[in-house]
Design a protein around this nucleic acid. Structure first.
Lengths: 107, 107
DNA sequence: CCCTGGTTTCGACGGATGTCAAACTCGACG
DNA sequence: CGTCGAGTTTGACATCCGTCGAAACCAGGG
């Protein structure tokens, strides 16, 4: 898949994904959502876990959503978030040592 | 290894790593260095690839070095950089879908 | 129809970050 | 030594980003 050094635009796209992961709060949010793989998590469950204010959590969830790492669905009064495994997988693979080796072999 | 939702300090540590990857220039630098897996790359080879100034490239290399993603060695007049595979592997594994599934199963 | 509780958006503020030019360090080579 | 080239550090500047309180939005229930 990725067998060559990153292109300028490719790097820009990937860096967006990693930037979404570059904050401790977002990483914990993602972890909490991922811990229910397949299932969903209500925002209210998340806000209770953190000391930061509700708007801040909502902001971080939006960053994760804009990066395509999670998806959200409103049902009644509550909003539920779930993981988008493919997006995580893409980022994981870029850093995978075996992918790195393959890339070196291709070059 | 990581079978539970991230702790507060664990998330902080990981976010440092991802923050180092959250810039397109650093991602391309890492890619260029990784493309020589095992071997090293001279800084002079890297600076030529980018439009940004030498000091800027040096700054980004320092960020990658401080994050433990690459290591540097001075030999004669030149400085050589190489990948630290273990560090990349750790970050990769956190995002690995199968690790995510295992974490969910453990919880 | 208007409260009430859950969630997002807006506006503002302080700190972090990418970038460059200039100054500095460190080997090598006369 | 003195200079030169490779790389790094420093200082400054503009921009971005995390955070909060206040306000707005939205669905459900008197």
């Amino acid at each position: 898949m990725v067998t060559e050094p990153l292109t300028e635009s490719g790097a820009a796209a990937l860096s967006q994904g990693f930037k979404a992961l570059s904050d401790p709060v977002r990483l914990r949010l993602l972890s909490l959502i991922a811990a229910r793989a397949g299932d969903e998590v209500c925002v209210c469950e998340l806000t209770d876990t953190f000391t930061q204010s509700g708007p801040t959590i909502s902001h971080h969830l939006k960053v994760l959503r804009d990066a395509g790492l999670v998806s959200s669905e409103r049902r009644g009064s509550w909003v539920y978030y779930r993981i988008v495994p493919a997006a995580l997988g893409t980022l994981s693979q870029v850093l995978d040592p075996s992918t790195l080796a393959a890339r070196a072999a291709g070059q």
